[in-house]
Structures are given as structure tokens and as C-alpha cells.
Amino acid sequence: MALLSKKDTSLILDPLADNNPITIQVLGICSALAITAELKASIVMAISVLFVMGLGNVVIALMRNVIPSKIRIIVQLIVVASLVIIVDQVLKAFAYELSKTLSVFVGLIITNCIIMGRFEAFALGNGPYRSFLDGVGNAAGYGVILIIVGFFRELLGSGTLLGIPVLGDPIAKTGLYSIGYENNGFMLLSPMALIVVGIIIWVQRSRNRALIEEN
């Protein structure tokens, strides 16, 4: 027997494209945009969300039969908050500089709508294993968009990837800069994140016209 049945595979793969949490479900945009000026920060954020969502979904799925439905939001918040505290402490201990860059946005994983949305929509009604797959899939879909946005913003904005110059040296005028290329500093400012995501949505929807909205 295969490790993943066909249904389980679609749990992981659907959120990557046609049911992407950011571009289709419109969830989790809050923390997604502000930290994407650098690729490294985007990757760390994606991994943190993957950890919180995978584990959080399992915990909620295990407790789903004992949570009274009236106070479920508070229970969910407490579970996420505890997991986020772990992430925050680990980041502070092992990657202090990065945790300064991410500043309050690590804490804002708690109110990331993807997490609450998946708890409500999936983990409360499914077993722990499938919930885990669903959590990993959605977090990966979120991470993919984050990494795409981070890639373009860092490449066009500062000419580096993960801090390594890839387009040559802007001061010594080597590489691309020798023919008059300039970094677009505007890409580093927050409004460009919105516009880059807008363009990603545009590309995705023109490739798959079933996703087009009425208005």
C-alpha cells in the first residue's frame, strides 16, 4: 500500500496551485507581505508557518471531540499562541538578527487567517493524519507565494539572492551594472509587495480561466 492515497496527495498538492491559500482563498495575507523584501526572511517565515500549521492541525484534530463549540476560537488561539511562542524563542536563540527583521510578524502568525481557517474548515472534522497533510499542504502553498514574492523583490530591489550578489557589484559597476542597469529600490518598499502579488494572481488566473471572478 502506498504511503499516500490519491485523496491524501490532493490534500497536499491542491493548495499549491488551484486552491492556493493566498491567491484563491484570500487567507493569510496579513503577515505574508511585510517580510518579503528579503528572500531569507520569506523562507524562515514559510518554515515557521509550516511548523505551526502542521503541529497545530494535529493538536486540534486530536482534541476535536472534547472542545465545546462555543469556546473553540479561544482554544484554537491558545494552541496557536503556544506553538508560536516556541518558534519565537527558537528564532531568538539561534537566529537573533533574523528575528529582529521579522519583528512583530512572528507574533502575528497567531492571527494568520490561514491557520484559523484550516482549523475551522478541516481539523475540526478530520483525523490527525489527514489534518497534518492538509496543514502541510496549505502552509506549503503559502510558502510558495512568499518565496516567489521574496525572490523577485530581492532580485530586482537589491540585486542579491539570500544576501549574495548575483547581478554584479553596483558600486564597482561589474556584471549587469556595467551596461547601465540600476537596482529598483522601489521594490524594497512595502507597496510593491501588493503589486507583485497582484501580478501573480493575474498570471495564475489567465492560465486557469476557471478561477476568474464575476466582479
Binding site: T23, V26, L189, S190, P191, M192, A193, L194, I195, V197, G198, I199, I201, W202, V203, Q204, R205, S206, R209, I212, E213, E214, N215
Partner: peptide, 23 residues
């Protein structure tokens, strides 16, 4: 609005332009 941009896409881009204005 171009069909693929309708709804979410155009809202993102307008918000981006408004953010540039607010800067």
C-alpha cells in the same frame, strides 16, 4: 477590468497604488 484581474487582483493593485500615495 481585464477578466483575470477582476475581484482580488485589481484590489491588490489598487491597494498597492494607494500605499504609494500614503508614502
Amino acid at each position: 477590468v481585464p477578466p483575470p484581474l477582476r475581484g482580488l487582483g485589481i484590489t491588490f493593485i489598487i491597494t498597492g497604488l494607494m500605499a504609494i500615495g500614503f508614502m
